[in-house]
Design a binder for these strands. Sequence first.
DNA 1: GTTGTTTCATTGTC
DNA 2: CGACAATGAAACAA
Length: 605
Amino acid sequence: MFPKLEPLDEKPENCQTPNIVPTICLSDDDDDEVANPDALALVLVNPDETQVANLEYPLKRKYQARSGELVRVSNLDVEDEIAFRETVRKTRMIYDSLRICLMLEDEKRRVNVASANVGSPSMRLPKVRNDLRVATIMRDNDLWLNRDKRIVGPIPGVNIGDVFFFRMELCVLGIHGVPQAGIDFLPASMSPNKEPIATSVIVSGGYEDDEDSGDVIVYTGHGGQDKNSKLHVVDQKLEGGNLGMERSMHYGIEVRVIRGFKYRGGVSEKLYVYDGIYKVTDAWLEDGKSGFGVYKFKLVRMEGQPEMGSAMLKFAENIRENPMAARPVGYVSLDISMNKEHVPVFLFNDIDDNNEPVHYEYLARTAFPPFVYQPSGNGDSVGCFCVDVCGLDCACAKKNGGEFGYDKKGILVRGKPLIYECGPHCSCSSECCNRVTQKGVKNRFEVFRSLETGWGVRSLDLIQAGSFLCEYTGVVLTKDQAQVFTMNGEDTLVYPYRFGERWAEWGDLSQVDLSRVYPDYVPPSYFSIPPVEFAMDVSRMRNVACYMSHSPCPNVFVQLVLFDHGNVAFPRLMLFAMEDIPPLRELSLDYGAAGEWTEPLSICN
DNA sequence: GTTGTTTCATTGTC
DNA sequence: CGACAATGAAACAA
C-alpha cells in the first residue's frame, strides 16, 4: 500500500572524494566543481576572519548564519589532526568552564538575593538552563565551530567514542547543528539543486519504531507526533529531514550517527556518544505501531572505522560488573595497589608475559622529606577556622585568590599555579568541598600493556572533564640529592617542572566577553610561585600515574596542590582530566618535549 | 518517586 | 524581514 521510494532518474557522476575539502556535487550538469584550498583553514576558528565576516552584516543579524556549503574533510596529516583536536578541546573546555562559571555566579546571586530578602522567602530567581545559556554566549563570541561549512562525514578533531554530556555541545562543535531535532540536514532552500541533504542523526531511542542493532539501524523519520503526548497522530510526510535522509541515500552521502543514552551520576542526565559514519541504504514508508504512516531509514555503518563508542561503553560496563566474565584472560593483578587505594587498580596484559608493575612497591601518596613539614614561621601552614563547611570567608579560599579550587561536585574550576586545599591544620570537617585530591582515587583504573606505548593507563569509568584522577607519586629528591642520584649516568627521575603549564588552559575564559552577561564580573588574577625544583624517584616506589603515556595532545594535566604542609617549593602533583574521557580510552600526559624527560638534565641551572 | 506542563534556542519555512 | 512551527531536555508544579 505504501510505495517504495524511487531514486531520481538522474544519477550523479564524478562524485569522487578528493583529498582535502571537496565540494559535493549534487547534480550531473555541474561537472566543474573545484576544491577550495583555503576551505580547510576556515573550519578552524579564526577570530580575525569571523570578525570580518561579522562586520559585513553588523546590522542584519546578531551572528553569522550557518553556511549552506557542503564539504568533506579527509586525509589530514598528523599535525592537522592534533591542531583540530586542540581546537575542539579548547572549545569544549570553554563550554565547561563557562557553564561552571555561570553556575557559581548564579549561586552568588542566589545568596545575595536571599540575604537581601530576609523575611520574604518567596523571592526567587528565574530558572536557568546553563547548558543553553553557555551556547548562546559562545555563539555571540564567535566560538562555535564549523558554521562556515557543513561538513559531511567525520568532523576533524572529533574521534569515534568521544562523549558529550550536553546536546548543545554537539551544536557548538558542528557535529549536529540543531538543538532538538534528530535529523540535521542542509535545507532545500540552501541546496544547489533545491533538495535537502541529511548530514547527521541522533539515535536516542525516543521513537517507538526505532530498531538499533549497532552496525545497522532502522531510524524513524520525524514529524507526525502530537506536541504533548508524543504519540503519532498523523502520517509523516516526505519533507525536511525525512526527504534529506532519502536524498542522502540517493547521493550516497554518509551520515554521522550520535547515540544518546540515559546516564546516571554524570553532570547531566544524558550522555551522547559519537559512533562514526553510516550510509543510508534503504528508505520506505510503513504503518508504525501507532497505525499512522512513518518513514523508516536503514543505516549501515561504514567499514574501516574504530569500534563504536557505544559498544565500548557497554563493554566497560560489563567489565565493571563482572571482570572475569567480560574478559576471561589477561588479568595479571586485580589490585596492584594492594588495598592502598580506595578502589582496586587492575593490571591487564593480554599481549605478552610481562608483569613488571607488580614488582614495584605501590605508593598512594608522595613521600616528602621531613623538613618540608616543619613550620616556616611565617604562618603559611596555619589552616582555616571554619566550622563544618567552609564559606567564601575561609582563609584557604583567600589563599586561592578568594575562591575555592573546585565546585560542589569536586570539578576543578580553573587551573592555577597552585591550589590550597583545606588540610589537617583546618578546623572544617572532612565534608568540606575544598578537600578533593586528598580523598584519593575514585575511578577504577587499569594499567594495561599495548603494542604502541608499552604500559598505559585507562579507566573503566567515564571521567568528566575537570575531575581529579590521582596523584603522581614518587620519592622526593632535593636538587642536591637529584644531582648525586644522576652522577652515575642513568637518570630515571621525573622532573615536575617539565610537565609545563597545561593547567593554564583549563578554565581559561579570556576569549569570552562576560561583561555583557555580568557587568560586575572580575576576571581572576593569578599569583605566581617559584618553579618547582625537586625531582622524583619512581624507580622503587610508584603509583598508577607512572604508567601514563606521553602525548603532545594529552587528556590529563598536572595541577599543583598543597594541603598537608605550607611549603610552596614542594607541592603535590595532582592529575586532572582535560576533557571528558570515555571508559577504556588511554590516558595521556604531556611530559614536556617528547622523549626528553628520560634524558639526564641538571636542574640547578 | 511519578507525571504532566512549560520553557529554553535554533533552524527552516512560509 | 518577521512570524511561527518543530524539535529534545530539564526545571518545575501537581
